[in-house]
Design a protein around this nucleic acid. Sequence first.
DNA 1: CGAGTTTGACCTGCGC
DNA 2: GCGCAGGTCAAACTCG
Length: 511
Amino acid sequence: MESSTRSNPTIQFPLNLNSTTTTHDLYGKRKVIDEMDFFAHNKDSHGGGQPIAVDDGDGKPNRTVTNFSGPPSVLDFNVNTGLHLLTAPNTAGSDESIVDDGISSNSDAKRAKTEMAVLHAEMERIDSENKRLKEMLNQMTNNYNGLHMHLLTLMQHQNDHIHSGEEHKNGNGNGVLVPRQFMDLGLAVGKDKDGVSLSSSKGRSGRHPPSPIDIEREDLSPENKIPRLSSDHSPQSVDQVTEATIRKARVSVRARSEAPMITDGCQWRKYGQKMAKGNPCPRAYYRCTMAAGCPVRKQVQRCAEDRTILINTYEGNHNHPLPPTAMAMASTTSSAARMLLSGSMPSADGLMNSNFLARTLLPCSSSMATLSASAPFPTVTLDLTESPNPLQHQRAPSNQFPIPFTNTQQNPSAALLPQIFSQALYNQSKFSGVQMSQDMDQGTHQMKQGQQSQLSDTVNALATDPNFATALAAAITSLIGGSYPNNGNNNTTNVDTSVNNNNGNVTTSKQ
DNA sequence: CGAGTTTGACCTGCGC
DNA sequence: GCGCAGGTCAAACTCG
């Protein structure tokens, strides 16, 4: 049905950091060298870090080097390929070439053997260098994610002030927004206001003796997840209903990746795997292990139509502090949950009120998000697989609404986009994620201001760092240039990353 | 040996 | 009530 088998055979962005396969082609080195492409700075000169055949003079390319040459940058990692250590028989005047000239083939074989050994060692060294660079890039990406998240939060606060007049009209007297009633719930996942487990209903299975973990698990039991809307409308029951439903709301992220999982900053433990109907690929179930009893879970499954597409579905709110990268995703899921429930919780058709559309329909969008009311659970789907996808519209059921969301980058990494989307969600839900809600829970505007100030300080400190913009540019360039080689940019891909020192805004734009 | 993964069994909800 | 599918559990297994 889906003709998504676009001529896209080489989505080989090495997100698969675990790739240790030894399948070599041609020269037996291509595998390792290809990973270097991840860090290619420009794609116009030599095809973007493509392996470059180096002729030793015999007319046959017998070794490859990766083009690290890019625009001279502060971010020069000083990658020493070390290839100068090799013998250079093609070099006129080389001692070795003189010695070898005219010598027996036996000597040539020895030399070749030695060279092979050297090359092998060199490959290993480059591989380790590659890994180190990847770690650096990951760290940089994480830093960027965190910073971006903070910025989004700050911008949201500004929006809050702008919309404050309108919101006060909603009038529950104390100026508390309707969606805000959900904010505390994210904090108290698994516990009621007395700190007691909400597991009021029966356990889902009588097999297990009660344990602290089981108590937490009971919160996740279907009975709690989909509480029945009884006639009991006491505040506590309403809270429980809301919380349970929030936990059921899901955010699904579709992204192309060869890796088994999309790195989202959290630690996950696999607790199950199932064959889902209609999909030959198994669905894996993961649980967040960053804190004991964290209710967040995710499902990972490859798309049946296009197995290069990885579908990550997140559910729940973290009950613990998060690293910046993880916070982005967490904010996305929690915001999505609240967005889905705010406005008109029982009526799926009411999800998309005009207010939401007005705030989220932003220009310059490329990636698509859809809200699904038809799924068993309210689900937000982010499609990061390509630019605006006509198939997406065709496939979307009548009750799914494609939502372009602000994204000025063509196709940033899967780790970056959720937080951008979260901003759109956040605009609607007035919720900034678990950590922010912890502060807001203090209930004072001063706290908000204090945090803004603190964040601003952090942002400005980073923004004034002359290395930061360059590092950020390089990281994003690598991500974009490496992760989506088929986005029609096998030519030059320039990313202009500028840091506005005045307001701390970090903007990235692809030229 | 501990942490993580695999995998078959079990539970629940839902449609018929 | 029955069967199916999704989701979860936990013993067995693997790996570092």
